[in-house]
Design a protein around this nucleic acid. Sequence first.
DNA 1: ATCATGACGTACG
DNA 2: TCGTACGCCATGA
Length: 106
Amino acid sequence: MSEKSLFEAIFEAIGKIPKGKVATYGQISRLVGGCSARVVGYAMARISEDMKLPWHRVVNSKGRVSLKENDGGDIQREMLESEGVLFDETGKIDLKKFQWETFVSE
DNA sequence: ATCATGACGTACG
DNA sequence: TCGTACGCCATGA
């Protein structure tokens, strides 16, 4: 059987993130089978606008946007705020409240 | 096959 | 809280 590409699985997981919620790179990596979070980040970098994936709902474990401000980080923050995701004074998100609830069965 | 790089994570100070 | 160091693994030269 042909297994789906790792990236495809990652893209699929990202597409399942509900609006107003966020997921961490590590969380996505566990959803797709436990690959390293680095691979998730690599897949994220390959996302094009044509895919129309909610890439902006993916943040790092510290609840902060990984992108640089001059590389689209400010854009990501705007989109999240537009969905109701609140940022801390230090520019962090309260993962306790906004992290996507997932049940990782192993 | 090896080397360098990357939208990460955890550990340590 | 922040910076540094190391591990992680896929991709490109």
